[in-house]
Design a protein around this nucleic acid. Structure first.
Lengths: 143, 143
DNA sequence: GTTTGACTTCAAGTTTACTTGAACTTGTAG
DNA sequence: CTACAAGTTCAAGTAAACTTGAAGTCAAAC
């Protein structure tokens, strides 16, 4: 196992298809050197970059957002643990928001929909105080 | 306020654009009668149907899946609270799965990425026992 | 030395969930 | 009666995230 990897090796190890890797490269999310043949050669650190991309996608970031995040990593050297963990703090917040949203949805499902008040008109859960007036009407208030 | 609503009224009350409502109708998710003029007229119960659509989207169902779910509602009569709650049990499971996934991601972010082991090769968190061999390599194991 | 598999580029296609635009009709207020 | 808002259909456009196909090159095994 060499210290640089081909696109096929990266694909196999990361679980991300070669076509997707080329796409990410086109978008500037990852980078490669080229062998004399023109074939891509990736440094091992690319694997972690890809792990972060996959990870960030799962928590709901778009590739564009991920690109902005990755742009904060140092270019000149291989990122350290500290570089990575700086990025991840923002993501923790995002995860917690997602969890909170799902919990809100669960509450709505059991107490609001379950109780049959989903007609919006007179639902205490849907419209406590004046949430609806602030956010506009309709089911969007859960979000 | 009549017992049937125009598309504009439904749009305003549900927070879903008229164009989206026509799209949903085309997909068979909602239905309308027509006034003599050809304009759509929706029964009030459509509002709840739309609330369910919006809700289900948030927990990750595609419109196709939502269509399948809604197809389980009775056609001949306005669905009761019980009809709705039958549907929602499946969704509770989905929500719990989502929450569980997010918690897994959070753990990964703090213990695995935070500790710097995201290179997959020798991460105890990423690969306890033989999870990786079973699910294939790469960051996908979180999912 | 030839076959096979992995790689290259580039353009075009796919899916989901809508939105937008054009061209036209209906309903309502003054 | 005349605006003007709101409705109609149908085709085409949009955005994200890739995938697929064509046409060709490169590397490793036999």
């Amino acid at each position: 196992m060499e210290s640089v990897l081909t696109i096929g090796e990266i694909a196999k190890r990361s679980g991300v298809a070669s076509s997707a890797l080329r796409f990410y490269e086109e978008k500037g999310l990852i980078a490669s050197e080229r062998a004399g043949s023109g074939h891509r050669r990736y440094p091992r650190s690319t694997l972690r970059r890809i792990a972060f991309i996959v990870f960030a996608q799962r928590i709901g970031l778009s590739l564009d957002e991920i690109g902005e995040e990755l742009a904060k990593l140092p270019i000149r050297r291989v990122p350290t643990r500290k570089d990575w963990s700086r990025l991840s703090s923002k993501w923790l917040k995002r995860i917690d928001e997602k969890i909170a949203e799902m919990e809100r949805l669960r509450d709505g499902l059991t107490s609001c929909i379950g109780c049959g008040c989903l007609s919006f008109d007179n639902c205490q859960f849907a419209n406590p105080g004046d949430r609806m007036a602030k956010n506009g009407p309709g089911p969007r208030f859960w979000l």
